[in-house]
Design a protein around this nucleic acid. Structure first.
Length: 611
RNA sequence: GCCGUUUUAGCUCAGGGGUAGAGCAACUCACUCGUAAUGAGUAGGUCCGGGGUUCGAAUCCCCGAAGCGGCUCCA
């Protein structure tokens, strides 16, 4: 069931899909229009993509999205002209000569490469425009509805994805089957902005990023810290049950540690620069926890009898991410990993790796993340000794083991060729949440190289020393990314067990029922709930509104009847109906919801039925 | 890091060469209300930072920072 990955998109077998063809043809139409509006513009690539198409251009003069109107107008004109697409083939020499004569040096270069690989070159012409292209296309431009596309955005993009090459200007366009679908896509995208974790994180006071500290270094506010703590408690419980032991290690270290591990050789530019102190020792902020765990494992001789050894840590790490790639909590420079390293024997590898993948599934199912798939990142033999450790047999063997496990588990997976870590293959989990954000939630690696560098061994049944395998695993990835993802998935409304404020008690009238409200809040507080009575001077309606806009999962309303009967009227954030129940029962239900980690932020989940 | 773009009160935003405006939030007073905004008042700004042009810059120009959309990278 392995699929070939196409840069995050799966176009396999879609070339003949009519929408794919229209998007592809629209890219050509865009290029034709741009060259009309801006003569002398050179062409890069212009493929169809998930929601439309793009084309990369090299402009003589900078362009802005204010030019979109003119370009779109030209595109619609081309569509009106019903230009037929005509395919022709050329020899490489002819094509290169023609492209060079046209001044299309980028295309000519690519053409050269294809020709040297002996590939045949096809060209598509429509109207005055011709582009080297594998096709297929619509028969004529009139087959594209003029109201089903729009130009979307402008972006920089390197020629052939290489940052050392020319920076081109990419124009993105959206295109769908119908105008309604286009409008719906734009609407949903706007809607999703309301749930962006950066917006909700600010509104709900979850985290802040201050320029006084620096970009990519989030400060977790009280509400956000509750979320982290709850997540951490969950992980601790599950890891305890799975036989993990917790460890804690420093944020800085002598750089020799990362020389030994190989990280300094492979990822130095991704680390904060060294601090030189005492006797010119170079200290680094740690970008990874593994070498520390390796030292703990290697602290004394180990026997096969105590394997596997599973060392877990919520470890804070620091990576110098490029300034342009920072994004809210999704890409930061200081982050806390749900990290662990499992040291095991070759015989235990399959079992341990399977358990790790199963743990992922448990988390995703629990958080109702139903759209996830795996990506197996493998090595390429040509880059052994350079990007990858030169241990060809271990690569082949371990990739086969992991493939076997993935096929057995039966979750969809893609192969990411040439994307492994330097010390072994990776298995990433890719997740999509309810607002459509797609992220790598966690990356897990098999490591058959670094333990040996730390001289890690265990004594086997044969009395000989063996080097253990190491599984790096982080099912919740980092606090930062995972919570960013959850904030959006939950649209800011957390289940009772996680919610920063779990219950707010609202009296109908403060003077008359304020004392009872306070008593209810006290009861909740005694049970360890994060609860509060709203005794302020706002109107009753305003208090309900405040409780709702703060996305507090439970509102307890108390008035005359509730006070007399020792009841509360329970209104859940996500549910329209409310119910009046005895206080004792409400407390018991909440306790259950908390201890069972019920996902009561979803409307279909019942809470009152828990007792 | 690269390309494009944005930055005005705690928040969301309007304005624009003659030294700033709204709503919400905050604070004060009155109101005490049965299911999503009670009313009145008060206070609040180095218009991102630095330089330049100008009689005068928040507004125009240059440099920088940060945010956003992409690209590159992502142990």
């Amino acid at each position: 069931m392995a699929k070939k990955a196409y840069a995050g998109l799966d176009f396999e077998g879609k070339e003949n899909d009519p929408l794919y063809k229209r998007r592809h043809s629209l890219a050509h139409i865009l290029a034709q229009a741009v060259q009309k509006v801006r003569p002398g513009t050179r062409l890069g690539f212009g493929p169809p993509v998930e929601n439309g198409f793009y084309y990369d251009f090299h402009f003589a003069e900078p362009i802005s999205d204010e030019d979109f109107g003119a370009i779109e107008k030209e595109m619609r004109k081309i569509i009106n002209e019903k230009q037929p697409f005509e395919r022709r083939e050329m020899t490489a020499a002819e094509a290169v000569a023609m492209l060079n004569e046209q001044g299309e040096n980028l295309k000519a270069e690519y053409c050269q490469d294809l020709a040297s690989r002996g590939e045949s070159l096809s060209f598509y012409r429509n109207g005055p425009f011709e582009d080297m292209c594998a096709g297929p296309h619509v028969e004529h431009t009139g087959q594209i509805p003029a109201d089903c596309f729009q130009l979307d955005s402008l972006a920089g993009a390197y020629w052939r994805g290489d940052e050392k090459r020319e920076q081109l200007t990419r124009i993105y366009g959206l295109a769908f089957d119908t105008k309604a679908e286009l409008k719906e896509f734009v609407r949903l995208r706007e809607e999703a902005k309301k749930y962006d974790h950066r917006k909700l994180g600010k509104e709900l006071e979850i985290f802040m990023i201050s320029d006084h500290v620096g970009p990519g270094l989030p400060l977790w506010m009280p509400n956000g810290t509750v979320l982290r703590d709850e997540l951490e408690n969950l992980a601790k419980e599950w890891e305890f049950a799975d036989g993990y032991q917790r460890v804690a290690t420093p944020h800085v270290t002598d750089g020799k540690l990362f020389e030994t591990s190989g990280h300094l050789a492979h990822y130095k530019e991704g680390m904060f620069p060294a601090m030189v102190v005492d006797e010119n020792r170079e200290y680094y902020l740690k970008p990874m926890n593994c070498p520390f765990h390796h030292l703990i494992f290697g602290n004394r001789p180990r026997s096969y009898r105590e394997m596997p050894i599973r060392l877990a840590e919520y470890g804070q790490v620091y990576r110098y991410e490029g300034s342009g790639s920072l994004a809210g909590l999704l890409r930061v420079r200081g982050m806390c990993m749900n990290d662990a390293h499992i040291y095991c024997t070759p015989e235990q590898l399959k079992d341990e790796f399977t358990k790790v993948l199963d743990l992922h599934k448990r988390y995703y199912e629990m958080f109702r993340l139903s759209h996830f798939w795996m990506r197996l990142s493998t090595h390429t033999p040509e880059r052994l000794g350079d990007k990858y450790v030169n241990m060809p047999e271990d690569w082949i063997k371990s990739e086969a083991v992991i493939k076997g496990i993935l096929d057995e588990i039966g979750i969809d997976y893609q192969i990411g060729e040439d994307e492994a870590a330097f010390y072994g293959p990776k298995v990433d989990f890719q997740v999509r949440n309810v607002v459509g954000r797609e992220e790598t939630a966690s990356t897990n690696q098999l490591d058959f190289a670094v333990p040996a560098r730390f001289n890690l061994t265990y004594v086997g049944t044969d009395g000989q020393e063996h080097v253990p395998y190491c599984i790096h695993r982080a099912p919740l990835g980092t606090h930062e990314r995972f919570l960013a993802f959850l904030i959006e998935h939950f649209k800011g409304a957390f289940p009772t067990w996680m919610a920063p404020r779990q219950v707010v008690v609202v009296p109908v009238h403060v003077e008359n029922f304020g004392d009872y409200a306070q008593k209810v809040a006290q009861e909740l507080f005694k049970l360890g709930f994060r609860a509060e009575a709203d005794l302020g001077s706002d109107s009753f309606n305003k208090k309900i509104r405040n409780a709702a806009t703060s996305k507090t999962p439970n509102i307890f309303i108390v008035g005359e009847r509730e006070q007399e009967q020792q009841e509360v009227t329970w209104r859940r954030y996500c549910v329209k109906e409310q119910q009046t129940v005895p206080l004792a029962r409400a407390l018991e239900c909440l306790k259950q919801a908390r201890s069972r980690r019920v996902m009561d932020n979803f409307a279909d989940v019942e809470v009152l039925g828990l007792v």
